[in-house]
Design a protein around this nucleic acid. Structure first.
Lengths: 160, 160
DNA sequence: CGAATCGTTGAAAGCAGTCAACTAGGGTGG
DNA sequence: CCACCCTAGTTGACTGCTTTCAACGATTCG
């Protein structure tokens, strides 16, 4: 599917409770092998019925996602292609780091089209921007991902 | 403050529980006279402690906001200035209608700058787009708002 | 080896941003 | 009461970034 809007990439352990809601269809696709735990909304609700701690936890998750969504709005609306891509790389790196520890090589299992949809860019602009970042010595494009050569510069672009 | 990001406009009765969260500062400003009920997060949490119905209700609110935020992402990333403004006008009209019933005259108490920040446009583009919509007979610009002359066309632009 | 898909690159067009001038209202102080 | 200023909004000319359209490489799979 071309030119959709991707609102996020999930990593192992992530909770996707809020992605689909009635007819407001947001769906979830897999870009690599997945194992999922799935609950029906009703039975989950029954399960959580008398567990205020769990409910509060879910609440916090929703609020966190909401804040992220709002951060992402700023990104979509106010940042250049280069800043978008840099921000994407840095936050992707940080999320991976939280899972596997620090690393210089960033695997990017999603397609350029997915990145484009996530950043509200075209696939061509994403590609060009990757190339530009490589020319500038910020990254090196390798098969299935990138090597982050100049994290400081990337962070500067992301923070901008 | 110029060129910020406005994530929403609140109407009477709206719940702003999720707008500020720790250091992720999103703030709320008033553009007309307001009456607010304010709870500290802690005491509200204590109050809601043993009321799963309330917690679930809050949850639904958060999820609704999250979906709206995602819809808004699509708007910010994928729509032209004209579509953005039309979408803003239509959804603003619908929200007003839910409060006061149908109306042709839409009061716009927020400034052009606010609209621009909400739609991730510049004030000039917002102004030009209003003018264009007026030239095309979709709206008439009046003091403090607009008159919606051709709702169908506006809706078409908004749905696009 | 072809076919297909994904990614890269180039050239051109278009939309929104930037910079700047101008208008209209609203409030203040002489 | 009027001159002045200050802000909000409009409009114009121009630039520039991203998109669009198109061709070209690279990799995979039958």
């Amino acid at each position: 599917m071309a030119a959709g809007q991707i609102v996020g990439f999930a990593l192992p352990g992530d909770f996707l409770g809020m992605t689909t809601s009635g007819r407001n269809s947001f769906s979830a696709d897999a870009i690599s092998a997945v194992e999922v735990c799935r609950f029906s909304k009703a039975s989950f609700q029954r399960f959580a019925e008398d567990k205020p701690n769990l409910l509060r936890r879910i609440n916090e998750l929703a609020i966190r996602e909401l804040c992220q969504a709002r951060e992402h709005m700023v990104l979509l609306g106010r940042r250049s292609a280069e800043e978008k891509v840099a921000t994407f790389l840095i936050s992707w790196r940080d999320r991976l780091a939280r899972q596997n520890g620090e690393c210089v090589i960033l695997p990017l299992p999603m397609s350029r089209q997915d990145i484009a949809d996530y950043l509200a860019l075209t696939i061509e602009t994403v590609s060009r921007t990757f190339t530009k970042l490589e020319r500038d010595g910020v990254i090196e494009i390798i098969s299935g991902g990138v090597r982050l050569l100049d994290a400081a510069r990337a962070e500067a672009l992301a923070a901008a």
